[in-house]
Design a protein around this nucleic acid. Sequence first.
RNA 1: GCCUUCAUAGCUCAGCUGGUUAGAGCGGUUGACUGUUAAUCAAUAGGUCCCUGGUUCGAGUCCAGGUGAGGGCGCCA
Length: 504
Amino acid sequence: MNTKQLKHHIGQSITLKGWVSNRRESKTVVFINLRDGQGVCQCILGLEDLGDDLFNMAKSLGQESSVSITGVVIEDPRQVGGFELHATDLMVYQNAKDYPISNKEHGVEFLIDHRHLWLRSRRQWAIMRIRNCISYAIHNFFQKEGFVQMDAPIFTGNAAEGTTDLFETDYYGKPAYLTQSGQLYGEAMAMAMGKIYTFGPTFRAEKSKTRRHLSEFWMIEPEMAFCDIFENMDTIESFLRCVVQEVLEKCTDELQVLNRDTTQLETISKTFPRFSYDEAVEILKGEKDVNGQNSLLTIQQDIEDTSARIEEIRKDILEREAAIAAGGMKKGAINFNQNKIDTLKQELKQLEEDLRNLPQWLNSAKNFEYGNDFGGSDETVLTRLFDCPIMIYDWPHEIKAFYMKRNPEDPRFARGVDVLAPEGYGEIVGGGERETSEEWLVEKIKEHQLPMDVFQWYLDLRRYGSVPHSGFGLGLERLVAWICKLDHVRETIPFPRYYGRLEP
RNA sequence: GCCUUCAUAGCUCAGCUGGUUAGAGCGGUUGACUGUUAAUCAAUAGGUCCCUGGUUCGAGUCCAGGUGAGGGCGCCA
């Protein structure tokens, strides 16, 4: 029996097993919010129903104590979940004391240090369930479309694109690296199966301290034979649409816990705008408007709005502080105002940081040099103008990987595609069409000064039945972060690994 | 690697131009209250102000170095 099944047992006596997430008490009643992993249910434990011993035990329960409560299910629309349990019996597995995570706000460092316990809180519960839903939806989509899941190796012997961002391990006395992409193997597997996808961990030793980088993350890499870049973009679009719609449908409770504005996700049904690199540069530099908006003016406006909001918050804080200092306020009101001030200060900190960054971003967009790759801030500036994901294709070949196919009509460009998520989440998908010609590839490998011998197996794919083929890589954590609208990808994975973080 | 912000009670934070015994809320403990949703109310315990050195009659506050953390850039999903 669990809290999700209560609606089938109204008026019946049942037993729930779980953890005490909160407790309130008065002289003859104790209220316990019971969390069982599925959901929550408020349990009412009355002195008369339980007797002195059990009632006193109920009173002594600390947060996160593990218990089993038997009682009658009562429908009550005021309650979270819609039901409550009028207890007739209580069994305590363990009475927990001094649980470190209270229902108040905590700082990031403290919470991450207690990640093993933090996972129990409501918000994390919602995020992990959405992550699960996304994983399932991804498998579902590819399986329905006839893709075969095949796993690429995690140890790799060669460093295809430099060793600086690879983790080195000892493999029977030889250096081995943890995979940073299974793509080349994906191509080999696609030639065996037609359409495949990998779903596995990826490791990058980038010393990045940003809200969108992890050292260990999960990547989904489909690869399709007989597929050009445009068919690839079609696949990416229907894939993302399918996953987001699945979450909207299946995770209404979870999205609500996160306070996610779902109208911003429903725009997924729109056709994703597609721009060539050339067009995207014009938009970025403010030389071309889109949707009646100019990128530079939009950021300029953001700067002004942010400054105005900062002023507003400062004033609000001062007023509340003055009101408290003036005295005569009831303790409850003081408490309320102080909490409000805390939240406002939090927002203020965030806004002040934005205000430090925005002018840099504006500057970087203004002075963007044609031919360069887009930086994180450029992506933010671009996507600021759209409410659904956008795709950018045909990149200068110099800045793309050696295996990227050149546009036959204009060899200055490589047929890569990046998908940028809205709301500042940046690149969630990177992909493209792969080079089919052995000659071109050999030339590229030389140009990138890569060791030819380790790519012989890869070149075999072009020697024996080379066909046009494409694929892409999706960062699961970035997708989860965007769908849940989280500040940082470290909340999207149970035990995050990022620069400087290895425990717990 | 570069830039930037920060470190005060178990937790979240206040502490002004340096000045007596360092404060609040939450959490803990004790008590009050039949219905609370981060309950409320009263009382109570709880401190190496990150570390080292310096300036000063006097440093939580100023300066230098170190350590740890947040965020941004580069790089990327």
